[in-house]
């Protein structure tokens, strides 16, 4: 089991309020790690530090043995870290396939091209990725007309374009119907298995978490309060206290 991501003592404050304090954990290849916690626990802040959007105040983030604190998101991506966002971020003026093609072009270093038509680039690869997330039939549709669940799946396809070794998924199933949630997480689990990558995801829906995660870490008020196998975490007294009544 190779350790893909090693986080140690990660800390971030906003105007005196400690959003994330001294958080340490690891993600290994082939594992689906869930990060849970109530609203404001610091999950998104944590994610934003992991992919370089936010600079931590202290702590270290190693990816595949390399320190990545201080790198920009695009550099982190180049190392093999894909990401999806809590509120989907896609290119709304493009078709579904073009969204993936742009990511593929970027991966292959072809975005500087001034002449060749972009829509002819990496068509098959793009379709394969869309196929994988079940979006192939919608390849020619404008991204702006997609249903929310489809956008989430498209985003996943985009995030997979550079064959990431680690995938960060911020609330991948938010806004989806229950059936879609199960399908999406099953897809993620399958990708983890077949590609032997690591996935770190945050999730509000505990059913999703306990059905799919290999391991769970729990944040509360910026602190890591529990970590371990899903059953162990579920049984943890503090976790139960925090979640009692806050589960809707």
């Amino acid at each position: 089991m190779t350790v893909l991501l090693k986080v140690e003592g990660l800390t971030k404050s906003f105007g005196g309020v400690r959003a994330v304090g001294n958080v340490s954990f690891e993600v290994t290849a082939g594992e689906l790690l869930a990060m849970i916690g109530p609203n404001g626990a610091g999950k998104s802040t944590c994610f934003n530090m992991l992919n370089g959007q936010l600079a931590p105040d202290a702590g270290s983030i190693e990816f595949a043995g390399r320190q990545i604190v201080g790198l920009k998101p695009r550099a982190v991506w180049r190392l093999g870290v894909g990401r999806t966002f809590q509120i989907t971020a896609t290119f709304s003026s493009m078709t579904v396939r073009e969204n993936v093609q742009v990511a593929l072009l970027s991966h292959h270093g072809g975005l500087g091209g001034l002449w060749r038509r972009a829509r002819d680039a990496h068509v098959d690869a793009a379709d394969r990725l869309l196929e994988r997330v079940g979006m192939r039939e919608q390849g020619d549709r404008p991204c702006s007309v997609l249903a929310y669940g489809d956008l989430k799946r498209l985003e996943l396809a985009v995030a997979l374009a550079n064959r990431p070794r680690l995938l960060l998924m911020d609330e991948p199933t938010a806004g989806m119907a229950p059936r879609e949630r199960v399908a999406l997480m099953a897809l993620a689990a399958e990708i983890v298995r077949t590609d032997n990558i690591g996935v770190l995801f945050t999730e509000h829906d505990m059913d999703v978490v306990f059905a799919h995660a290999n391991r769970v870490i729990v944040l509360n008020r910026g602190q890591l309060i529990a970590a371990g196998a899903p059953d162990a975490v579920r049984a943890d007294a503090e976790v139960q206290r925090i979640y009692l009544g806050s589960r809707h």
């Binding site: 992919n51 959007q53 920009k72 998101p73 695009r74 991506w77 180049r78 990401r83 966002f85 971020a89 896609t90 290119f91 709304s92 003026s93 493009m94 073009e98 093609q101 742009v102 990511a103 072009l105 970027s106 991966h107 975005l111 500087g112 972009a118 985003e155 985009v158 995030a159 374009a161 550079n162």
Partner: peptide, 17 residues
């Protein structure tokens, strides 16, 4: 496309390199 990507979603553009 890279230009439009940067316009449509700077966040996503940055996240794909």
């Amino acid at each position: 496309y890279a230009m439009r990507a940067g316009r449509d979603s700077p966040l996503r553009a940055d996240a794909i390199g």
